[in-house]
Each structure stands twice: as structure tokens, then as C-alpha cells.
Design a protein around this nucleic acid. Structure first.
Lengths: 361, 361
DNA sequence: TTGTATGCGTTATCAA
DNA sequence: TTGATAACGCATACAA
């Protein structure tokens, strides 16, 4: 905690400038002195003070990640996005600073941004899920001189840097698959409807129905809250409303699990009596019973891409203007037993094959 | 990003020292000049540079949190511990830096510690779950001059600062409760046995059995991996081995959920045919079907306490020696329908009552 | 290839 | 109550 570059210089019999050069490698240093310097650093247990370095370089090599306080971290999607962020950050030499926001009030947001600025973070990844209107603040920050911001998992906007996933397309694939299997009566269990993700997936559902010449029936729709038990409850409602239900598309895997459970207690078998598709493709999905067909979002990839993009912006010479970019990643469908109609015991085998094929892509 | 204390000073017509005094409040400033200074800061959109401040103060007001890379973040326990950490950190004026470790190799650990030291974090919360021997490195760091470390959720050690939860006691309560309900044949679905938590809970199971004069039968024990599907599989094994099984204690709620599912597909009703208890008391537990009896650990509290303790150590005058402390929090049992023997439909009502009573504590 | 001197934005010490 | 000045630990332009 105490040894400085000067201590090293003294011990190695050189000037501080030379030590700095040896450390950063930005200027050549004679091999022999280099050895002496490293030996001295080793002996003293020297660690460069990144605060001081950041001060003079005007570059902290810190990225701030802003997330919603409580639950988000617990969702599979968020935690795998964090993994992607983290890996890429480590690769590019950034440390991660974590900032939490709970109510998303204007005041809280500006406090957070000010703190990030005070810490001199090099960039921001804004990873708070978008609900109605909570992104309005971005219009007021033009003159604030905040570091560059990437919006993760948000509705694309031509004036912002966005890395997102095509939820609508993912839902489209899921529903189209069910229609292909011959289902007409397809219920959905959505997430909270003020989430952008829910809205996009709902549109995907409509897309595929319309393309097949079917009408989206509102009574086939029930809203959940992402958690298992809401899937359970949602399934009950759907089955009571439509005893002849042929398939269900749950907007995430946890709710699909709840749906499986309800089906089981109603004496219904999946997929014999009812097909089921989820969303997220969480690791457990393949070992549900039956194994669950699901949409893989690629959150890890998006997290990684966010850091990569952010780094590109940071590195770009400030003078040259760089137009904001929007990256929209395509999800993919993993087909498993829960959505394979009319297959008996033999189906298990072929579903495995299908999955392996998908995985190797 | 550019205005400095000097700009503010110039605009307000005072010296930089005075601006600093007005900002930190450490020395008195005339009310009138104070006003001018704040007005100037407002006008320029000034944000203090915390890198510079940290450099001269030798205090970054940053706490480093070290966690395991992938899955951990997704577990309910970890994410609520993070919430506790975050809230207390915000309250005490700390920012949070996040460091990820995956393989826990010695090399990776020392790289991480070096980076933390280079960033001049004020303290460390080590929140990597303890598995066999991965805490050995602590013996080698005496001379490294690292900032103070709190070990979160680890086996207590008189030479370290530890904040942990009494897993053994929690398991004891769970099993004692099942015995009280009249169960003799009690199966357990454990976590991975190299986790400290699993071992402690196993001991708790033994404790309660022995106290009741029963023998811990190894064939009543099956190991899971914390995830839902392993609970499902574990339950199958237990039921095949012991068709006369009376109760199951799952080492977390996710696995308990899997167990419920298996029971359902075996045509068994809970609690009529089989009692079930989980661990974690995650929010969904109360809306499982049946609502799940579970052990609440209080992870949020432990996270908060870790920061509080760390801050105490940081603030303590370096000169005075401060003996390491171990804080062991007591869990509590939430009794719900899944473990209420011999109650019919009427039971639902009374279980709710019991829960409310617990919640109001 | 190396040394010297200056500045990065703050706080703290000492005078005024 | 305020102002000048010297650190804090490092990087760099300029000289040597």
C-alpha cells in the first residue's frame, strides 16, 4: 500500500521516468536495466497506483454498469449478461463498477450519473430493463458531458448506442414452430406488460398468427410476472378458459416450468395433450420433464458486445464524430420434446438429435 | 469532464482551497462566499474528480466485492446478499467494484488481489463460496499489505473477519420440525458435498436425528447440484429406494421445487403423502403448490453486516490493533403447508396464519 | 537509452 | 475566514 514508483527507482538505481517506461512499455528501456527494475518491483511488492495513473492519463479503465436494484440480478438473463460483460471487460483491461438504481426516479438517475462522472469512469453500460418512459432522461444529458453510454437490452433508437436482442423475432419463431406442429389454439403467458420485452414478444406472437391467417384472441393471453408461480397460475386460467387448448407459449422458462406443473396436476401430459415453448433457454430447460423447447437469447453475447462497442467508442479519437449504432442480435430456437407433437417414446431420441444439431451451430 | 476546482474558484473569485473547504465542509467558510461558490459549481456543472481526491486522501471510498464468475449471481441467495451489500455501501458513501474469479486458482486469486490493491480499494468482501481448500491462500498474504478483508458466508475462523450464517442450525430446525410432525423416514437432497454449506447442513440433519435417537441412514441421502432438475432426479432416486418415505428435506428451494414435481408425477400428494422442507425461503416459495416450508437465511442482512463491519475496520485508526471478529447469523424456519401433516383442506387457512405470524416478527 | 522537470485535480499546512 | 504552496504517485515532453 505504500511503495511508490520512486522507491523502485531508488532501489534499481534509475530515475522514476525509466521505471515508468519499463512498466508501461511505451518507450524502450535497456534490457539490463529492465531486469533490475523488475527485480526491485518484485522485492518491494510494488503495485502501481491506478488512481494516480488515471489522474494523469485522464483514463480510469473503469466501466460503470448500471442495473436495477433487487430482483434483476437473480434472473438468468441478467446474470449471464453480466458474465459476458465481465469477460470482455477483463480481456480489454477494464475493471467494473456496479451502480444500483431502484425507483428510476429522475433524481436517482442523475445522482447515479453524477457519481459515475465523479469517479471518472470511461464509459457506462445502462442495463436497466426498459419500462414505460423510464428512458426519457436521456434527452436532458446533452450538455452534461457524461462518458459514452451503451443501452443494453432496450428498444433501438437511432440517436443512441444500443445493443439489444430481437425479442419480436424470437417470439415469432416460437409461435411459428407451434403452428407448424399443427396447433391452432395457442395460449400465451406474458411477462409484465410494461416491460419492453413483453411488448416485443407479444408482437411476435401476433406476427406469426397473422401470417398463418389466424386471429389473436385476447382471451388466450394472460399476464405473468416472470416467476414460476405466475406461470402456474396463468396456466390454470388458460385451461379453465379454454379446455381445448393445444399449446402454450410462456414468455420465459420459469413460467413455463410453472405451466408444466399445473398441466401435471390437471392430469395433462406434455407434449401428448399440450405443446409448450418457453423463452430464455436457461440451463435447466433441457432437464425439465419433458425437456423444454425454448428461445435462446444470447445474453452473454450481448453483454460482451456491449463492452466491445463501448471500448470502440472510448478509443475513438474524441474529435471525430461517431454516429450511434444499434446492434440487434438474433435469437435461436432450441427444439426439445415439450413441443414435438404426436411422437411417442421414440420421440425422445430424435429430440436429442435435434438438440445436438442446434448446439453445434 | 473538464471543469476543475480551479475553474470554480476563478468564477467565484476565491482560491481553490476555499472551494475545497466549501465542498468538504471540513473548515468553515463564510456564508456569503459559500453561496457564490455553489452557484459557480452549479453553473459550470462541476463534479469533483474522485481519482484526485483519492490520491491525496489515500482513501478511495471503493469497496471491492469478489464473487465467483458464472452461476453464483443467478442464485437467489447471492443476489440478495448483493442487495444488502449495495444498500449499506450506498448509505456509507462507498462505491462498489466487482471482481470475478472462476477457477479459484492461486494465480487467478493473486491477480485479483493485486488489481484490487492497484485500484486502492478501501476494503474487500470475499464472497466466493467455500469449497474444499480454496481458502488456503489467506495464509500467504500477511506481508502483502492488502486492504482489510471480510469473508462472507464462510466457515468461521478465529484469525479472519467472517460474516456468515449458521447453516447447521438452520438444517437442525428443519429436520427437528419434520420429526415433530411425526416423521421417522426423512430423506435429504443435498447440494454438492464440497460446498461448506452442504456439509454444515448435513451435520444439522445428523444433529436432529441423533437427538431424537434415530440413525442417519446414508441411503436416505442423495446429492444434488442446487438446480431444480437435480431435485427432480434426487426425489426419484429416494422414492425408488424408499417407497415408504415420509418426508424430504431439500437443501434449497429450487431442488424442493423439483421434488414437488416428481412427487406429482408419481401421484403423491404433499403434504398428505409426504412432507417437504426447503432452504433459502426464496420469494416464490410461498406460492409453490403446496406452499413450501423453508429456512430463511437472511442473506440481505449478512451482506449489509459485511459492509458495516468492513467500514468499521477501515475507519479504525490503523495504529490500534483490532482483533478479527466472526458474526454468525441465525436463520429462521417459515412453516407452510408442505410440511403440515394430517391437515385437510382446513389446513390452508391455518398455514397462512402461521406464516403471517412469522412475517411480522 | 536515460534523467529532469512539469502537470494531472485535490487536500492540507501554514501564513496572512 | 481566506490565500499561497506543497504534497499525493504517476506519465511525459524535453534535454542530455
Amino acid at each position: 500500500m505504500k511503495t511508490t514508483i520512486e522507491d523502485v527507482a531508488r532501489l534499481a538505481g534509475v530515475s522514476t521516468g525509466t521505471v515508468s517506461n519499463a512498466l508501461t512499455g511505451k518507450r524502450p528501456v535497456a534490457e539490463e536495466t529492465q531486469k533490475r527494475i523488475f527485480a526491485a518491483m518484485e522485492e518491494l511488492g510494488y503495485q502501481p497506483n491506478l488512481l494516480a495513473r488515471g489522474l494523469v492519463n485522464r483514463r480510469s479503465h473503469v466501466i460503470s454498469v448500471v442495473i436495477k436494484e433487487l430482483s434483476d440480478l437473480g434472473f438468468y438473463g441478467y446474470s449471464s449478461a453480466m458474465t459476458g460483460i465481465q469477460r470482455e471487460a477483463k480481456r480489454l483491461g477494464y475493471s467494473l463498477m456496479l451502480h444500483f438504481v431502484d425507483r428510476s426516479s429522475d433524481e436517482e438517475i442523475s445522482t447515479t450519473l453524477n457519481q459515475i462522472q465523479a469517479r471518472r469512469s470511461d464509459g457506462i453500460i445502462w442495463a436497466i430493463h426498459e419500462i414505460a418512459g423510464n428512458r426519457d432522461w436521456v434527452h436532458d444529458i446533452q450538455d452534461k458531458n457524461y462518458p459514452p453510454i451503451i443501452f443494453l437490452h432496450m428498444h433501438p433508437d437511432p440517436f443512441l448506442n444500443v445493443v439489444s436482442i430481437d425479442n419480436r423475432s424470437g417470439a415469432r419463431m416460437a409461435v411459428a414452430h407451434l403452428i407448424e406442429q399443427g396447433c391452432r389454439k395457442i395460449g400465451i403467458i406474458t411477462g409484465p406488460m410494461d416491460w419492453w420485452e413483453s411488448q416485443a414478444r407479444l408482437e411476435g406472437w401476433r406476427d406469426s398468427l397473422e401470417k398463418a391467417g389466424m386471429d389473436p384472441d385476447p382471451s388466450l393471453m394472460v399476464a405473468g410476472n416472470w416467476l414460476t408461480d405466475s406461470g402456474q397460475a396463468g396456466m390454470e386460467i388458460l385451461l379453465n378458459r379454454h379446455p381445448e387448448l393445444e399449446a402454450v407459449f410462456a414468455f420465459n422458462d420459469s413460467m413455463a416450468l410453472g405451466a408444466i406443473h399445473t398441466a401435471c396436476s390437471y392430469g395433462l401430459s406434455i407434449p401428448e395433450d399440450l405443446l409448450l415453448v418457453g423463452f430464455d433457454n436457461m440451463p435447466e430447460a433441457s432437464s425439465f420433464w419433458p425437456p423444454l423447447t425454448s428461445v435462446r437469447q444470447g445474453m452473454m453475447k450481448s453483454g460482451q458486445l456491449a463492452v466491445e462497442e463501448l471500448n470502440r467508442i472510448i478509443e475513438a479519437n474524441e474529435s471525430e464524430y461517431r454516429a450511434p449504432r444499434q446492434h440487434i442480435l438474433q435469437p435461436e430456437l432450441f427444439i426439445r420434446r415439450s413441443s414435438m407433437r404426436g411422437l411417442g417414446q421414440k420421440a425422445a431420441g430424435s429430440s436429442v438429435a435435434q438438440e445436438q444439431q442446434n448446439k453445434s451451430q
